[in-house]
């Protein structure tokens, strides 16, 4: 008898609506936006100074000349505009105050709801990349690669975003068990910034650490797209680099699904 009961047919409409709403919500915090763009300008300038000073006293790595490293750190900062957002913190907040129960009362996929909502939020911040880039160009020169490289970078960036989503989602899922996640989250944010290559390209790391980093997902979030952008990863290596990213996405996505199911099960068994 149960087998004959079908859930409502899957529709994209609610998820577009969630994303649109999240964008509109973000747009209401306009002041935040301006300070954010302003701070980008300062950070781009400071990073340029640091790299110029460092390069003046050290031999440049063969494939990262000064203009490439400045491009790298500027693009990394702009990527950070969307990558540094914890787009699933609503999950943890709604677990905390118990309102997650009302999400389960709606005929929707709850994790997809969080994905749509978070992505809407991120898309609004993505819009900020354009004015931020325009401002950054006032103080630094950024290399513009070929269209093919840009396309590969875009794809790699998108997969990196999805990996970041899975990591944030997993972190927020721990709230199913602990309700307190800020410490773990701080460590992971710090690890992503450092081991992902957001702050410093991984080639500058000691060799031993580079081997460790190769077995962690963080490089797939920042380092891979950035190295594609500046040309360190050439077209002949695109396929391999993106395959590694997809592998991480598959692994983290699978873990996220398992953890989500266990957490949701706990909610429906223990009532939160």
């Amino acid at each position: 008898m149960n087998a004959s009961i079908r859930g409502p047919r899957f529709r994209f409409e609610p998820y577009f609506a969630f994303a649109a709403r999240a964008m509109a919500r973000e747009a209401t915090y306009r002041f935040d936006v301006f300070t954010n763009i302003g701070s980008i300008l300062v950070r781009v300038y400071l990073l340029r100074m640091v790299w110029v000073a460092l390069y003046a006293h050290n031999a440049a790595p063969r494939d990262l000349p000064l203009h490439a490293i400045i491009t790298y750190s500027t693009v990394a900062l702009l990527m950070g505009l969307v990558m540094d957002i914890d787009q699933t913190r609503a999950l943890h907040e709604r677990l905390h105050d118990g309102s997650i129960a009302t999400d389960f009362l709606k005929p929707i996929s709850v994790p997809l709801y969080y994905f749509a909502d978070g992505t809407g939020e991120v898309l609004f911040h993505a819009l900020l990349i354009v004015p931020s880039l325009a401002l950054a160009l006032l103080v630094v020169h950024v290399d513009v690669p070929s269209f093919g490289t840009l396309a590969a970078f875009g794809l790699s960036f998108f997969i990196g975003y999805l990996i970041g989503f899975c990591i944030n989602f997993l972190l927020n899922c721990t709230a199913f068990w602990t309700l307190e996640i800020s410490a773990v989250q701080m460590i992971v944010t710090w690890l992503t910034g450092l081991l992902g290559g957001e702050l410093v390209p991984l080639v500058f790391f000691p060799e031993a650490l580079q081997h460790v980093v190769a077995f962690l997902p963080f490089a797939s979030m920042f380092s891979t797209p950035l190295l594609i952008y500046v040309g360190v990863i050439g077209p002949e290596r695109y396929l391999g680099a993106i395959a590694v990213q997809l592998l991480w996405l598959a692994i983290l996505g699978a873990i996220a699904i398992v953890v989500w199911r266990a957490g949701a099960q706990r909610i429906v068994v223990q009532g939160g």
Partner: peptide
């Protein structure tokens, strides 16, 4: 006619 926890979404549409 539906077991609510087995068919959460279908049930949600009815209530």
């Amino acid at each position: 006619g539906i077991a609510p926890f087995d068919h959460r979404a279908a049930n949600a549409q009815n209530i």
